[in-house]
């Protein structure tokens, strides 16, 4: 077996999601085992910004792009609350262009705290929070259209 073929085989195993593979032919015996160290980190949650995992520790994703693929499920896997749009309209982060934004990442919010404005047919709807927590992420650009139920903010309960 050539080096190239072994490389291909390892790549295949990396994408397979299998933890351990043993292959034995008349010519060779190959044993590939995933890096055992990150097993404690298996619930992806805590690894949002961690370095790309070692090649062989790639989770069972069909694509060979480990880091970005891991980032998205990581966030949704935590206990963040998603604040969603109650209506179709245009999303604004402040009550007027010269006014300060209503909330920033890191701000603590409580029920009743205005978090954004959604304009629909010249009606400006100030959206008040129904939850308590800390803003982790703003998911929509200022002055862009939003759909009904579209996620607007990620909030970490505190």
């Amino acid at each position: 077996m050539e080096t190239k073929e072994i490389q291909k085989l390892i790549d295949f195993i990396a994408q397979s999601g299998l933890d351990e593979v043993n292959i034995e032919t008349s010519e060779l015996k190959i044993k590939v085992k995933r890096n055992a160290t990150p097993t404690n980190a298996a619930p992806v949650a805590a690894s949002v910004a961690s370095a790309p995992a070692p090649v062989l520790a790639v989770p069972a994703a069909p694509t060979p792009a480990p880091a970005p693929a891991a980032a998205a499920p990581a966030e949704s896997a935590t206990n963040y609350i998603t604040v969603k749009s109650p209506m179709i309209g245009t999303f604004y982060r402040a009550s007027s262009p010269e006014a300060p934004t209503l909330v920033e990442v890191g701000d603590e919010i409580k029920p009743g705290k205005p978090v954004c404005i959604i304009e629909a047919m010249k009606l400006f709807n100030e959206i008040e929070s129904e939850v308590s927590g800390r803003i982790v992420k703003v998911l929509v650009e200022n002055a862009t259209p939003v759909e009904f139920d579209q996620p607007l903010f990620l909030v970490e309960p505190i």
């Binding site: 109650p86 009550s95 029920p111 009743g112 205005p114 010249k122 009606l123 400006f124 709807n125 100030e126 959206i127 008040e128 129904e130």
Partner: peptide
Amino acid sequence: VLIENALQG
């Protein structure tokens, strides 16, 4: 006319 509503849910 300019209407501003405060929504809770």
